[in-house]
Simulated assay, not measured.
Amino acid sequence: MWIHVVSAHPNFTLEAELRVLVERNPHWRFTIGDEPPADAGYQVLIASRPTRELLSASPRLTTVQLPFSGVPAVTREVMADFPHLELRSLHHNAGPTAELALGLVLAAARGIVPADTGMRSGDWTSRFVPPRPTMLLDGHGATVVGYGEIGRRVARGLAALGMRVRATRASVTSAYTDGDVEVRPADALTELLPDSRVLVLTVPASPATTGLIGEAELALLPVPATLVNVSRATVVDEKALYEKLRGGDLAAGLDVWWDEAIEPDAVHGVPASAYPFHELPNVVLSPHRGGAFSLPESAVLRAAHLEKALAEIASGK
């Protein structure tokens, strides 16, 4: 199997992963570059933002493999003109992202950051007057929006905390049970929100999910409640979320933002939002690190998942 790799990406390269793949799979042919190789005959293209030239250069191309989960809008647009090609994403970061999501749930729901800040100056107020809003999770309802690789892990974690967990998934048409989790169609979300003390967003960005959580949906949440977003910022209406949080009845843990630093050498002075979320004590701010680019294990995980994905493609799965 011939695999062509476009390795350039703002947040990572694939050099370490490719060394592993080449060493372990000498029967596969790898070529690398932003331009198609001469006499292109690759069957698989690994690229985050494939160009039309790369997609049309090889008559043998059957599959485009993204090196991460989620499809960039520019990739979705160009792939629409190549309906015969299979598009696959990678879920090596599902575990790290789910771990961060659960951490944000606990930090936001229990006011851990304000309590930590107070303790650093010798202030024990949070022991006797908890930061607002602080809430118990055990026995209460939780909803995970998006029941893919990340959502399933988050749902299991919330169930382990004693929560009654429901999830919505766009690809299902009727409810079913997966262990301790009740899975519903996506259009059941508004029915679930009034009983969702915790709402975790793990859906991919798409036209269908843009603005999915707006003023009306936020108004349906009980008091108090916690919202955690590890998907994409555009899933939530920016102004509506800020205004709801400013009211004090909602806590939030946010790992994704409407504006983000994308270059490792330009990380200062980048505003995350047009609104001052950083001034709100009931928000835990995280700089889009759920995908764990900086974790030592990241390259190992990506290599293992890429190898598995390529083996499936080679076997016709």
Rank of each mutant, 00 (worst) to 15 (best):
V235E: 10
L212P: 09
A186I: 06
L221F: 10
T226E: 06
V203Q: 13
E260P: 00
L192D: 05
D255E: 11
R246G: 09
I213K: 03
V236D: 04
L201H: 06
A216R: 15
L227G: 11
D195P: 10
S196G: 10
V223P: 01
T234R: 12
L254G: 13
V228E: 10
P185M: 12
E238I: 09
T234K: 12
P194R: 11
G179C: 07
G211S: 00
N229K: 11
D187S: 07
R197L: 12
D178P: 07
D237C: 00
G214H: 02
L212W: 15
L221W: 06
P204R: 02
G211M: 04
L241W: 09
L218E: 02
I213M: 01
N229A: 03
V223C: 09
P194F: 13
A188R: 15
A252L: 11
K239E: 12
S206Y: 12
L245V: 02
A205S: 15
P224N: 01
A240G: 04
W258D: 01
G214K: 10
D249K: 03
T234V: 15
K239I: 08
E191R: 15
D255C: 10
Y242S: 04
N229H: 12
L241D: 06
L193N: 10
A219Y: 08
T177H: 13
L212H: 12
D255F: 09
V230F: 12
V183P: 02
A188E: 12
R232V: 04
D259Y: 15
R184E: 15
L227Q: 01
S196L: 04
L221A: 01
A252T: 03
G179T: 03
A188V: 08
A186W: 13
D178G: 04
P222S: 08
L254Q: 04
K244T: 14
E215Q: 14
D178T: 00
S196Q: 00
L201Y: 03
W258G: 01
P207T: 07
V181I: 15
S206A: 14
R197N: 10
S231P: 09
P207H: 01
L227T: 03
T177Q: 13
A225K: 05
T202C: 13
L245W: 01
V230D: 08
A208R: 14
V183I: 13
E217N: 14
D255I: 11
P185Q: 08
I213R: 05
L193D: 06
L199Y: 03
W258R: 00
V198Q: 06
L212G: 11
R197F: 05
G248P: 01
I213E: 01
T209E: 05
A219R: 07
T210L: 04
D237P: 02
T234A: 14
E260L: 06
T210K: 12
K244S: 13
D180R: 14
W257C: 02
D180A: 15
V228D: 04
V236A: 11
V200P: 09
D259Q: 15
P207V: 06
L250D: 00
L201F: 10
V230T: 11
A252W: 13
P204K: 02
A188S: 15
A208T: 14
V181C: 13
A225D: 00
D178S: 03
T202W: 03
T190A: 14
A225M: 00
T209N: 00
E191T: 15
Y242M: 09
S206E: 13
V198C: 02
R197K: 12
V228K: 02
D178H: 02
T202V: 10
A225E: 00
L192H: 07
E243T: 10
Y242C: 00
